[in-house]
Simulated assay, not measured.
Amino acid sequence: MSFIDICYPTVTTPNLLQIVLKGIKRISFQGCMTQLFFFNFFGSMEYMLLTSMAYDRYVAICHPLSYHLMMNIRTCGSLALITWGLGFIAAFPLSVLISSLCFCSSNEINHFFCDLTPLLTIACDDTSSVEYVIYGEGVLFVFSCFLLTLISYIYIISAILKIRSSDGRYKAFSTCASHLTLVVLFYLMIACMYMKPASSYSLDEGKGLSVLYVIVIPMLNPILYSLRNNDVKEALKRLLLTH
């Protein structure tokens, strides 16, 4: 997660800074397609990794005595490898299909990086094949990951409610609170960005949401996970009290 949180903003943020600070608004076609691939690659890895982490929380809460047996190094390594592999499978076909389109009407992208919707907007060719792949991957990857995460948390919440002591419930909930916060933020941004009718989608609105999606959320990840550390909590309390 830490590695993805570094790589994901790195794909788009340097280009944004170049536009804002230097006024350089050009990008080569090869650079645009490369940016598109890695943006989809790391984005796909993000929600797949969040799904793997949901399973980890499920095992920790629902099967605590078997946790070290079930979540051993081999299992964690396999989940990480699957995440990388599926991320590539999700990103590669879209990059190939979009790079084969003809962009004859305009070479201006109404965005600060090469995203799917702005590129499809300026394409002259029939984009139905790309749209079918986007919808197919949405169902196959995004919806499946969301469903698996939702099922994991149904079991987790059910197990937490069965704990009799309030301290036990608080401890169990704190184990998955940071992850749950990230899941809600991540899928909320996906819903706002890509799960809207084409007629109601605004590229200007999309640019604003993209800043939250590709910069703010990865920046919040280490903060939210650090709050599980008691030393960080105490340091934050002292900082707030002194001010």
Rank of each mutant, 00 (worst) to 15 (best):
K237W: 05
S100Q: 09
A159W: 03
V139K: 13
L21M: 06
I73G: 03
N110L: 10
L21Q: 04
M48Y: 10
M1Q: 09
H111P: 05
V133Q: 12
T12Y: 02
T10C: 10
F113W: 12
I223S: 06
A91H: 03
N230V: 14
L79K: 12
V214M: 15
L86C: 12
I122Q: 15
V232W: 08
Y225L: 14
L148S: 08
T175S: 09
V142K: 07
I4T: 05
T10M: 10
F42D: 02
I190V: 12
S165Y: 00
S174C: 09
C124L: 14
K237G: 02
A123W: 12
V59W: 02
M45P: 05
I157S: 04
G206H: 04
G87D: 00
A172M: 05
H179P: 03
A80Q: 04
C192V: 15
S166G: 04
A123G: 11
T181H: 04
V232G: 15
N107C: 04
S105C: 08
H243R: 05
L209F: 07
Y155V: 06
L120N: 12
N229T: 10
F92Q: 05
C114R: 09
G85I: 00
I27Q: 15
C76D: 00
P64K: 08
D204I: 14
V211W: 07
S202K: 05
Y155E: 04
I160Q: 05
Y8K: 01
A191F: 11
D56P: 00
L209M: 14
I4K: 00
E205W: 03
I109Y: 11
S2R: 01
R57A: 09
A54R: 04
H179G: 12
G31E: 14
Y153K: 04
L16S: 00
I98R: 14
S210G: 03
F92T: 07
V133L: 15
Y67E: 03
L203S: 14
F186K: 07
H243Y: 08
F103V: 09
I122C: 14
I61W: 09
H111M: 12
D204V: 15
F92M: 07
F141Q: 01
S2H: 06
F39P: 00
P64C: 05
F38N: 05
C7W: 03
Y58E: 01
M53F: 08
G206L: 08
S52F: 07
L116T: 07
F29E: 14
C104H: 11
S226M: 04
Y155I: 01
K25R: 12
L224S: 15
L236K: 15
L97M: 15
K233N: 08
L140P: 01
I4Y: 01
F88A: 15
T117S: 10
S2V: 13
I4Q: 00
L185Y: 06
